[in-house]
Design a protein around this nucleic acid. Sequence first.
DNA 1: TGGCCTCGAGTTCA
DNA 2: CTCGAGGCCA
Length: 666
Amino acid sequence: MPAKKTPKAEIAELSAAIGEHDRRYYLLDEPIISDTEYDRLMKRLKDLEAAHPELIKAESPTRRVAGGVGSDFAPVKHGAPMLSLENAYEEDDIRAWDERVRKNLPPGQSPSYLVEPKIDGLSCALTYVDGSLTRAATRGDGDTGEDVSANARAIRAIPLRLGENAPQRLEVRGEIYLTFSDFEAINTQERRAGREPFVNPRNCAAGSLRQKNPAVTAQRRLRFTAHSYGVWDGADEPRSHAEFLERCRALGLASSPAKRCVDVNAVVSWYADFKEREMPRLPYAVDGLVVKVDDFSQQKRLGFTAKSPRWAVAFKYPAQQATSTVLSVAFSVGRTGTITPVAKVEPVFCAGVTISSVTLHNFEEIARLGLRVGDRVLIERAGEVIPKVVKVVERGKAGSDIAPPTRCPDCSAAVSKDEGFVAFRCDNISCPAQLRRTVEHFASRPAMDISGLGEAAVDQLVAKKIVANVADIYAMTKHQLLDLDLFADKKADNLLEQINESKSKTLDRVLFGLGIRHVGEKTAEVIAGLFSIDEMLRMSAEEFQAAPDIGPVVAKSLHDFFSSPSGRDLIDRLRKSGLAMAKPKRLVAAGAPLAGLSFVFTGELKSCTRQEAEEKVKALGGKASGTVSSKTSYVVAGHAAGSKLKKALSLGVKVLNEDQFQELLP
DNA sequence: TGGCCTCGAGTTCA
DNA sequence: CTCGAGGCCA
């Protein structure tokens, strides 16, 4: 039977264990115990220390928060200045940099480059004396930063004590940052506490580091990654950057994964590959790559300019954000009459395109942003396609408030807002703007798929009063089309042919195309699979509601449509025009290999469109959805996958690439 | 009633 | 793609 542990031994054991779990979590990213178990170890250690205060060590994990008294961010002079890097934005910039490097090295000495991701966080310098953390400072102006020691001690990713063979004095520099999921968790908490959420992980990390109370910092799961050093006193100073990064890991400091590139061509291709393949999978924000000459003797030879080292450069990806000025606010009218405010901004280049108009969603959003015409705003087009206003950065001088419209911008009818709803709506059922959108929707690909009936054609047909509802599409003559001077002979024939073909579309598409409120693609599919059009014309709201996924709101909407004179008339005319409205055939292959599985597609696929992929899944008995949840079986990520991939990773949902998906198919 | 999980609706630029 | 909101289940 083992002897009972002495408190001293147990404290040492617990401290070591907690340190090891921190290392596993933050350095190796391979935790082996749950948060609860971790908390239990910590509690046991705290209890023991409370009972035996004489045994508390300065580097005890419990001292992370209790140890330091807020130093109030006193100014700190760095051992060596923390310089910024020169930026390169394009291939030409990086090639010019490479040329300069090679010109300044002795002939025949070609540099080998190390390339690391440039994490979007904040720089911080940690000083270790004889292996113990003594000070942490922010970058500040490069010469002098702020003392954030007390808060740095509260960060579990920062070891209080380095591993074996630490230099006598080390000032290591790196980036403090947050993962996307930790950032979101913090924002959820902030919102719950009734506070403003942080705009992005970077701001959140900065705010967390500059907390008055280190206990708050401790809860924020900040990370640290070493990328350089200012001072290395003592034996064994590394001789290359690669060696430095490796030594950091051995000492217990996380350091960036670096890629070696033999020349500038390799750097350029890695820049593209990294963005394409690596970046989307990273759990934290990266705004570029840092390219460094690996060999320290070469670095020394290259030296510094006044502002930055000649041996390193930041190869940035195009900014996803830009600032611009709000010139005016327009109102657009949707198919259902919803009025959406859209900000017209001074055109600004952002993430590859020039943006001149930005949706504001609704008036609550405007209030939340505190937005007025004339303001300078931060615009974002991160990952997704559609730009949005992140925040107001500067109040315009002669600005004016943005008032909701009282009349529809298109038909001047009165505007209403339902109690408890966010949106303002135009209630005029024959509003031309709504009609245009309805006709476009009817002709759209997932509905009746009439190509040639796009925005331009619909605008004219509605303006000339040739089309006053979707049934009129089937009454158009070639003569009328030619009159529009939008169509030449051949094009008019093509359109009429397309319209004729659309008559054979199945009932689900017709139902979806009608644009009944709350009836989208999925709901239309469910209803069309259960009832014929004649049954629908006779059904009560209760009967609709008996169908799966149909609640009172959707049921009422369906019943309202099918019992209204205009709805019944529309159906009647469509039928007389020769629309088949046949029940869709759900062909499920024998054995249904994908039965019970649900798929979400994201990004661009090589072999087919996302819609086609969804069709395949459905034909094999699987389900295709648009949102990732814990119930999703697989997320199939194509090229340039975005937030859904991140969601899948954070929920632990299986992710397939396109090839792996193909293998699942028979 | 609250907390998922879905769906519907609107939107940008080239 | 993101938001708001409807439907379902505990």
